[in-house]
């Protein structure tokens, strides 16, 4: 019966509801952040200086561009421009990969300085630093995990567009994938100032 009748709005509603759960999932971490930031304002301030603002800014811009490209792919598919659609989805995935590579080097540099959860060096720095970097790794890590999932989702969308399962009059899945990707962007929009810009 699901083949007989397609409900695009229902499908979109489902995606939005899922996005709400994701917002609340990160919401739990934002609550934690708010509490510990309040309890250790000075230490958070100092610890934030350890983070690399230029890399953070570049990554923010990369994610914003990727958000724009996936949004444009929906315009492209509605205009029946299959090639452009594929190209836009692919560039979104590539941008996501660049984001992850940057993240990898950023994390790697921290690890080299002995800053990672449970390390002796970090524990010796004091409560505020432990909590700041605990949250930093946990939140950006969870965010990176969402990026990986998002890349997989968009990979499927690429394939579906390619085999014409998604077309100009049946593109709700692509729109849902796009919504998910914007969510990833949305969360980063808040993570960036909260971690990089409070120094």
């Amino acid at each position: 019966m699901s083949n007989v009748h397609r409900d695009d709005i229902g499908s979109k509603l489902g995606m939005w509801l899922f996005i709400f759960t994701e917002i609340l999932l990160f919401g739990g971490l934002f609550i934690t952040y708010a509490v510990y930031r309040y309890l250790h304002p000075e230490a958070f301030h100092l610890a934030s200086q350890e983070l690399d603002v230029p890399i953070g800014t570049i990554n923010t811009i990369i994610l914003l561009i990727s958000s724009a490209t996936i949004a444009m792919s929906i315009t492209a598919i509605q205009q029946k421009k299959k090639k452009l659609t594929l190209w836009l989805i692919a560039s979104t995935i590539v941008l996501a990969a660049i984001f992850l590579i940057n993240k990898y080097f950023e994390w790697g540099a921290k690890f080299e300085h002995g800053i990672f959860p449970g390390s002796e060096y970090l524990d010796s720095l004091g409560y505020g630093d432990v909590l700041f970097f605990g949250l930093y790794f946990f939140m950006t890590g969870l965010h990176a995990f969402h990026i990986i999932i998002g890349m997989a989702v968009l990979g499927f969308m690429f394939y579906y567009v390619k085999i014409d399962r998604l077309t100009f009059d049946n593109f709700q899945l692509l729109e849902n994938g796009g919504l998910y990707w914007h969510l990833v962007d949305l969360i980063w929009i808040f993570l960036f100032p909260l971690f990089y810009l409070i120094a």
């Binding site: 958000s67 724009a68 949004a71 729109e175 796009g178 919504l179 914007h182 962007d185 949305l186 929009i189 808040f190 960036f192 100032p193 909260l194 810009l197 409070i198």
Partner: peptide, 19 residues
């Protein structure tokens, strides 16, 4: 200010990118 700007940015993303 940074959080306010983040708020504005997310409004843009929600309204336009997320339709």
């Amino acid at each position: 200010a940074a959080l306010l700007i983040a708020g504005i940015k997310s409004t843009f993303v929600l309204l336009v990118f997320m339709h």
